[in-house]
Design a protein around this nucleic acid. Sequence first.
DNA 1: GCATTAACCACAG
DNA 2: CTGTGGTTAATGC
Length: 226
Amino acid sequence: MSSPICQLCEVKSSAARHLSDKELEKMNNHCVQVSYKKGETIFKQGSFSTNITYLRSGLVKVHILGPEKEQIIKIAKAPSYLGIPTTIDEEINQYSATAIMDTNVCYIDIDTFKNFLLTNGNFSYQLVIDLCQEELASYTRCVNRAQKNAAGKIADALLFFKNEIFESSKFTLPLSREELGNLIDATRESVSRTIAELNNDGFIEVSGKHIEILREESLEIISRNG
DNA sequence: GCATTAACCACAG
DNA sequence: CTGTGGTTAATGC
């Protein structure tokens, strides 16, 4: 745990860029920075939510324990807020956040944060924009999960990791087969099988969690048509 | 009917 | 935790 210097922060949220020096100094006095190792829980569904969580670096899975099983709602990459919906007007966390790579997080005091919302229109406006983007993205994920077949969902996920997370055709999956299934709504067996097929058909090169995407265009077609 | 798809089960590595 | 094979239930043509 260490004291951040918010004024000098290189990874401010787009909202926080609208804060004045004075406000940033106030933030600095009501904020702590914590590091998490891969696998550690950042906050847990059911526990008190007392701070706004801001993801400075690393990769996190956001998940909910449903009536049947664990559902991964999304993979969150830095920089982004992690817990606004579960903190701003909820006393209890409605979902969990777990680091899937080494991760660095800032906890911002909720009252300080709310005070910015009430007094700084630009800050609030930017935050609304961010939340809207996230909500739209969430609608899209919802539709895709429900309507695409297994191959389409796997292709989606692989392209997501390539384009949005690692920005490289070659990467190491930060999730187990089971977790990937929980993310795209498929069983671990389907995930294994589909990945093996994509490998056999030469679209990707697989070795355990190491993935290389060989034919991105083909994956895009599979993503669309299944 | 027949084919396809994916879940469920079981077992091996 | 993974990969694979057999089985089964649902759906579509």
